[in-house]
Simulated scan of single mutants.
Amino acid sequence: MQLPDEPARRMRVSDADREQVAEILRSAAGEGRIDTDELDERLEAAYDAKTVADLVPLTDDLPATPPYAQPVPARHVSPVTSVGEPTHQRGVAIMSGFERSGDWLVPSELTVTAVMGGADIDVRRARFSAPEVVITVNAIMGGAQITVNPTTRVVVEGIGIMGGFSGPRDDSEVAPGAPTVRVRGFALWGGVGVVRRPLD
């Protein structure tokens, strides 16, 4: 495979370039071409990459892939990874914080309790364990922010008591086949917000 010339290899890469390589790596892992340990190592290297030369070795041994990343489409859709059995995880923030971000597997059910504390849940680079995941946030004098891709479908069903739940109203960028994030729970003197934001 012909590699980019020296000036191209020195070119700085964007977050979109890194994300494209990450998608190639995840697909390769799903096909059994690389194992999970190698996937984790290559993903870490992809997100740390500064130049095209840093990205070249991560995909050049995989079939039908470019020697370096190309920009991803604007309509990035988070991948859904089937895990068989439904998964349920819990998070607690009592006068403290709970945070999830980066490349992680969103369980089919995630329950977070925030008491005089806060939760920051970012699923933009995450993989989803099911086409629809449920995030239940119970906030008492606390709050939570959930950040999703512009293409992700969002359903907000929470109950606010001297508090509130808020979410995006415009679904114009939601992509066919995109996962759904369903947000439930209650907020007592607290707030839970869902925002759509492109990858940085």
Rank of each mutant, 00 (worst) to 15 (best):
L3Q: 08
P4H: 10
D5R: 14
P7A: 08
A8V: 12
R9Y: 06
R9F: 08
R9S: 05
R12N: 04
S14G: 01
A16L: 13
R18Y: 04
R18P: 03
Q20I: 00
A22P: 05
E23T: 11
L25Y: 10
S27E: 15
E31Y: 02
T36N: 01
D37R: 10
D37H: 11
D37Q: 15
L39R: 10
L39W: 13
D40A: 15
R42Y: 13
R42E: 12
A45H: 12
A46E: 07
Y47I: 05
Y47M: 11
K50F: 08
V52T: 14
V52G: 06
D54L: 09
L55N: 04
V56T: 14
D61R: 11
L62I: 13
P63H: 04
P66A: 04
Y68F: 14
Y68M: 06
Y68D: 06
A69H: 10
Q70Y: 08
V72C: 04
R75F: 02
H76V: 13
H76R: 14
V77P: 09
S78R: 14
S78K: 05
P79R: 13
P79M: 09
V80D: 09
V80E: 10
T81A: 05
T81N: 02
S82K: 04
G84R: 04
P86R: 03
H88Q: 10
Q89W: 11
R90G: 04
G91L: 05
V92M: 15
I94R: 11
G97E: 14
F98P: 02
S101W: 09
S101R: 14
V106K: 07
V106N: 05
T111G: 01
A114T: 15
M116H: 02
G118R: 02
A119T: 05
A119W: 02
I121G: 05
V123Y: 06
R125N: 15
A126W: 05
A126P: 05
R127G: 11
S129C: 08
A130F: 00
E132W: 00
E132I: 11
V133G: 01
V134A: 10
V134I: 14
T136L: 00
T136C: 00
V137G: 13
G143C: 10
A144H: 02
A144Y: 00
I146T: 05
I146S: 08
T147S: 13
T152N: 09
V155Y: 03
V156K: 01
V156M: 01
V156I: 03
E157C: 06
M162W: 10
M162E: 00
G164M: 01
P168D: 12
P168S: 12
P168V: 10
R169Y: 00
D170E: 12
E173N: 11
A175V: 03
P176L: 10
G177D: 07
T180L: 13
V183Y: 00
R184H: 08
G185F: 00
A187T: 05
L188V: 15
L188Q: 01
W189R: 15
G190D: 07
G191T: 13
G191E: 14
G193D: 11
R197C: 09
R197T: 12
R197K: 15
R197A: 11
P198D: 05
P198Q: 12
